[in-house]
Amino acid sequence: MYKEETTQFVVFRLGLEEYAIPILKINEIIRLKGISIAEVPDTHEYVLGIINLRGEVIPLMDLRLRFGMPKKDLDSNHRVIIVNIQDKNIGLLVDSVSEVAEIHHEDIVQPLEEISNINTQYITGVAKHKERIFVILDIDNIISPETI
């Protein structure tokens, strides 16, 4: 027997690529059905607005727009992942949520240049998992605008 370190990730899809966020960073996953989004004046395009989730105010970010991908209309697969970043809850709109994956640490490698079409400053690594490749996001970095 040898000791094996693993972490659970929530895997979701944006366009053709699959991304992963450590499950411990995630509060819950919701759908927008029945929830209205209030636009907030003078904000970045990727901030869709704020939502009222059981009395709590939560800003909603379109992760596609955040990473410079084209906007996509809401369909029945969409999900909002409520993540906890720097002690605040923020909703991330994604195309769909695929699964919860248990990933071995040894399968995570440092990102190579140009591995994904998103800026490497939001990526902590790349994981190989059963013939698939997940881009692991550094979500602590996504609330502030690009720092180039």
């Binding site: 907030v40 003078d42 904000t43 105010v57 800003p59 605040k88 923020i90 502030s144």
Partner: peptide, 11 residues
Amino acid sequence: FTGKDNVLGEL
């Protein structure tokens, strides 16, 4: 959520 580098900006 507000401030220079925050989600909603300076608002």
